[in-house]
Write a protein that binds this DNA or RNA. Structure first.
Length: 430
DNA sequence: AAGCGGGACAACCGCGCAGCA
DNA sequence: TTGCTGCGCGGTTGTCCCGCT
């Protein structure tokens, strides 16, 4: 690695490199505690140091800052780092934000010197698989099914009594995907309660969810599953009135032929979706046996666990339909796809929204232009996840989504907020 | 006791981004 | 719009320490 240029701030002066002496530390501490650092490039001169500003900044941030927690990492911190790394990857600064008193450099060193080696030691994976894990941590959910890493993660989660491991043994392989067995078949479904996983509140910036959502079905589209074309025609013929609805939940595919069923029109019966239950694996309407011919049938087959077992009346929030109108038209919910194997597809979908390449997505965008907020796309097959996200959206939460093959990860203000698993929905709030 | 290797930690480097002129 | 500057981040390297042979 050639160092010919160095820092621009170091070019003009003769700067010292290497380890810091106690005298240098004292100068830097004295200056910053009395003046603040201000512009780092001017700090060394003002503090009487023959260092570059960048070096001063690093020394202060990583070593001299008074709020740093020194010493070895606790098991809780290690568990947190492992789990955050699984979600965030090598974004050490983001991980470190969840560890008070720890720096990104510290976390990074800890990972590279300790956790990574333990992973390697525990793993029976091939070199290729390991490389995949470490270079693309978002895929570790998939690779965790392989024995070595899975066992290691299990052991890590076992170390934390508050954690229910997401790597449960009742997962079956379906080619490259992990498919959870039916909750009914396995008894207690896996629930990942991140509020308890972490010592910190993982959802500091999210408004609490209502205890349940209400989905009111209607009769207009009872006997068909509308396509995007149908939606647009309905809108153009004024049978789809944006003011009647709060939310459109739709799933698009390359051919625009996979739309989560919904109904429009007058409310008839209510279906309550509670936010603390687990959801079924993704089921396409065509996969149902017999195929569902209405939203009601679909819901009954697809989300039986949504049905409330409580006779208490629901709270005030009412979603008139899966489909509804948003008062915040124009907002975009972006899906950030990191997995290389589906990256191209996801990019197409994003371009479809923005550039309207696909005809069905053109209509999709047309609905948006008409004032509807579409919370849809690939990651939204889980209607519960979509509703949760919609609720946060309405509450003004500015969030980003990323999607692995199994998870929808919600991040807000750089904080890990929540998993919304397709097949084992998070217990979001007690 | 000396040499060696690995672990832990500190520091540096290049790159990208944001702000600004 | 472009170029400059400062800053932050992640990857990499350097240094020290300690245990083992």
């Amino acid at each position: 690695m050639g160092h010919g240029g160095g820092h621009t701030c170091c070019n003009k002066q003769k700067v010292k490199r290497g380890l810091w002496s106690p005298e240098e530390d004292e100068k830097l501490v004295n200056y910053i505690t009395s003046h603040g650092h201000g512009c780092w490039s001017s700090v060394p001169k003002l503090a009487g140091l023959q260092r570059c500003g960048k070096s001063c900044r690093l020394r202060w941030i990583n070593y001299l800052r008074p709020d740093l927690k020194r010493g070895s990492f606790s098991s809780q911190e290690a568990t947190l780092i492992v789990d955050l790394h699984r979600i965030l990857g090598n974004r050490w600064a983001q991980i470190a934000k969840h560890l008070p008193g720890r720096t990104d450099n510290e976390v990074k060193n800890f990972w590279n010197s300790s956790i990574k080696k333990k992973l390697l030691a525990h793993s029976h994976l091939s070199t290729h698989s390991l490389a995949t894990i470490f270079t693309n941590p978002k895929t570790t959910n998939i690779h965790a099914s392989l024995s070595g890493e899975n066992q290691y993660y299990e052991s890590l989660f076992d170390a934390n009594p508050h954690v229910v491991s997401p790597y449960q043994p009742h997962m079956n392989h379906d080619h490259d995907h992990l498919v959870h067995a039916s909750p009914a078949a396995i008894g207690q479904p896996p629930v990942v309660n991140l509020d308890k996983c972490f010592d910190i509140d993982p959802t500091p910036n999210l408004p609490p969810l209502p205890q349940s959502f209400i989905v009111n079905s209607s009769s207009v589209f009872d006997h068909q599953f509308p396509t995007m074309e149908f939606l647009m025609n309905s809108y153009e013929h004024n049978t789809l009135k944006s003011e009647n609805y709060d939310l459109i939940l739709a799933q698009t595919s390359d051919h625009g032929d996979s739309v989560i069923p919904f109904k429009l029109g007058e409310q008839t019966n209510n279906i309550e979706l509670t936010t603390s239950i687990t959801t079924q694996p993704i089921v396409n309407s065509q996969d149902l046996d017999p195929p569902a011919t209405s939203q009601t049938e679909y819901l009954e087959a697809f989300v039986p666990n949504f049905l409330s077992s409580s006779s208490s009346p629901p709270p005030s929030l009412v979603l008139p339909q899966f489909m509804a109108h948003s008062s915040s038209a124009g907002e975009t919910i972006e899906l950030e796809e990191q997995d290389s194997d589906v990256e191209g597809q996801q990019r197409r979908l994003l371009q479809g929204v923005v550039e309207s390449v696909d005809p069905s997505l053109e209509q999709y965008r047309g609905l948006r232009a008409a004032g509807f907020s579409l919370v849809g796309m690939e990651a939204m097959e889980n209607p519960m996840a979509a509703m949760v996200l919609w609720w946060w959206f309405q509450m003004g939460v500015d969030y980003q989504l990323s999607r692995s093959n199994r998870d929808v990860v919600v991040k807000s203000d750089n904080h890990l907020s929540c998993f919304v698993r397709r097949s084992c929905c998070v217990s979001l709030r007690g």
